[in-house]
């Protein structure tokens, strides 16, 4: 089952827990699975059915530009990170 790393700023929603497991084959599905257990998590990460501006998701170490549609393989790690650019 995919492991979701909860950003430190949102760990008050998970009782201080750093990682939680959620079922699903996309980031969206994983968040849907987590929401009943951790109410408010989706609202903190998403707005208008998309990741909040300035956020990106990384799945198993690879940043994705597909947002909530990003495929999540079984046993993957999911991280929510600030979006990055470059010079």
């Amino acid at each position: 089952m995919p492991t979701v790393y909860i950003p430190p700023a949102l760990r008050d929603l998970t009782g201080g827990v750093e990682t939680v497991e959620g079922k699903g084959q996309t980031v969206r599905a994983v968040l849907v699975d987590l929401e009943p257990r951790y109410p408010g998590l989706t609202a903190k990460l998403c707005i208008d059915d998309a990741l909040r501006p300035g956020l990106m998701v990384a799945v198993s170490g690879t940043m994705s530009r597909q947002g909530l549609r990003t495929p999540v393989p079984a046993n993957a790690e999911v991280h929510f990170l600030p979006a990055l650019g470059g010079g």
Partner: peptide, 22 residues
């Protein structure tokens, strides 16, 4: 803001964002 959200009690400030990684 922290992770893109603002706590309701937060006042206007020159500090625009906080990031925390552990």
């Amino acid at each position: 803001t922290e992770m893109g959200t603002v706590k309701p009690e937060t006042k206007p400030s020159n500090v625009a964002a906080k990031f925390l990684f552990t």
